[in-house]
Design a binder for these strands. Structure first.
Lengths: 244, 244
DNA sequence: AAGTGGTCTAGACCACCAT
DNA sequence: TGGTGGTCTAGACCACTTT
């Protein structure tokens, strides 16, 4: 076993060093999403530390959402499910007892472009590298309620333009076809008035209120891999957040 | 020492029982915001459990933001600072290198009213109990950018109408004058078009975009104590959120 | 029965803070 | 110097899952 041993000279405690080592094995795809990682006893033996310290390291990663632990079964690399946190933000339950419904989606266009400064900055890529620009609409009950403008690196997502993306969530595609799981994201929200083009697509009147959401989605290593700008119908948009 | 001992028959582990017991002492104001609580050794002795288990209980509460621990000093009841999380949501750094500025505030009116169903429901109070309704504007560089409509229980906040509230943050007042610290809050955001009255106050045109934020603020025991509805100028509003 | 994680103990040693 | 929390050990016993 070629174990990358822990460093006594490092001022970081063992449990944090181990947590980073585990994250490293996930980042480099040694351990993939959903896979079981070695047991507490194996890790303790491999790194030459006590089981208690291993437990502490694993606890940190569970807290961060990187790992899942199941008593009697094992410890697994977590598979973040963004479709859930996405739908949380829509008032699907607004004035109706409807069941939750996954929004439909339709790709309007995918083009290869040179990124402008904002996009290359957000995606942390070289401005000379090309990116895909995808325009997409999302629907509920067959009516468009969100327009999305999505930018991703051509290099990382080479070939995505040949896939069938209609009616699919993108993040599972990123994960399964391009080994790029989305781990976390940040969003910026602001209210705007609908442009005439947006209003026409969304079936509302120009200058009606819309919510503009900018999102940067990150994979392992806090690497940004997608930038998107969404315009949502104001009357269907309700964002819920807990502040602690 | 009248120690409420832990329950072996309870299926909850000791460390969770202890965490709840500590939260109870904070809720009933035995231990107040900012106060130091007994040391690990004292708690272990008092409850008849090992120090390791106490450490685990305290770790849970640190994670929840209830406690703060300082090596060499002690463990303290955390004082949530909402002014910070509030200002996070405004684009004070938008297109300018300005330093962060606490918004000014001016109370337009405080009235005693009977709550409607929505408000008595949100505040979980009897519909026959009276509430204060406060209208307030918040300013930056002496220009209004948010209109607030705030509802609080007359009983809990008896006498607040006699205080000088202009240019003050409300949550420190709740905490210091009424022993009601705000621990957490939930918000609902949606985009709207400015009404003519709102537009006049905010210095924008009717139907310009505004952000509507509804907030329920909770004190200890998840008890709602304030409901507020804010209308913010769309061009000055930018909400930032991290999704994990 | 064997292996997993979950809880708990009773220590040890360290780093930090006050006095 | 004594008290605090932070790290770490080397076990024990339990609950759960799989074979």
């Amino acid at each position: 076993m070629i174990s990358s041993n822990l460093d006594l000279k490092n001022d970081k405690p063992f449990y944090l060093q181990l947590a980073e080592a585990i994250k490293g094995r996930i980042t480099d795809n040694t351990w993939r999403l959903g896979m079981m990682i070695p047991s507490e006893n194996e890790l303790a033996k491999e790194y030459g530390i006590s089981v208690g310290t291993v437990k502490k390291a694993l606890g940190v990663l569970v807290q961060e959402g990187v790992l899942l632990r199941r008593q009697g079964k094992g410890t697994f690399v977590a598979s973040p499910d963004f479709s859930k946190s996405f739908s949380r933000f829509f008032r699907y339950d607004w004035k109706s007892g409807n069941t939750v419904e996954t929004p439909g989606s339709k790709v309007l266009s995918i083009k290869v472009i040179r990124p402008d400064d904002i996009i290359s900055d957000k995606l942390q890529i070289d401005p000379n590298q090309q990116v895909f620009r995808m325009k997409r609409i999302r629907t509920t009950q067959n009516k468009p309620f969100v327009i999305e403008d999505i930018y991703i690196s051509c290099e990382r997502f080479r070939g995505i333009e040949t896939l069938t993306l209609d009616q699919r969530l993108l993040y599972p595609v990123y994960n399964e076809k391009f080994s790029t799981p989305i781990i976390w994201a940040e969003e910026y929200l602001q209210p705007e008035s609908a442009s005439s083009e947006a209003a026409e697509i969304l079936g509302i009147r120009p200058n009606n209120p819309v919510m503009c959401v900018e999102r940067i989605a990150y994979t392992h290593g806090d690497l940004p891999v997608e930038w998107r700008r969404s315009i949502g119908r104001g009357d269907l948009f309700r964002y819920h957040i807990i502040i602690r």
